[in-house]
């Protein structure tokens, strides 16, 4: 089971690679709204979901994809962590 720190690092790395920005610079932190600040657009969001599903082996149904926490690195990591734990309990 991945801990939240490990998930955060992977999500940060992914966002850096697709947004051409560096974590910690120019206002990019765990609480930054990635859409409002222009780091991710709607195309990028589709790619993000695809990355999260394959990297963490979780499934995003329609309701989960509308979770407003998916706007920030911290929020994304929490959503991933919760769902990894939920799926582990179901197995």
């Amino acid at each position: 089971m991945k801990d939240i720190g490990e998930i955060l690092n992977k999500v940060r790395g992914y966002v850096e690679s697709v947004s051409l920005a560096e974590f910690g610079e120019n206002n990019l932190n765990d609480k930054t709204d990635l859409f409002e600040e222009g780091y991710v657009d709607s195309f990028g969001f589709v790619e993000l979901i695809s990355f999260l599903e394959s990297e963490f082996d979780i499934h995003f149904d329609e309701d989960l994809m509308l979770d407003l926490r998916l706007a920030s690195i911290g929020g994304i990591s929490n959503v991933v962590s919760e769902n990894i734990n939920k799926q582990s309990k179901n197995n």
């Binding site: 709204d33 859409f35 409002e36 657009d41 709607s42 969001f45 589709v46 509308l66």
Partner: peptide, 14 residues
């Protein structure tokens, strides 16, 4: 597969 509500949601801020 595209969820229209989701697309609208991700674009609202943009």
């Amino acid at each position: 597969k595209v969820n229209t509500k989701l697309l609208s949601h991700t674009r609202t801020r943009g």
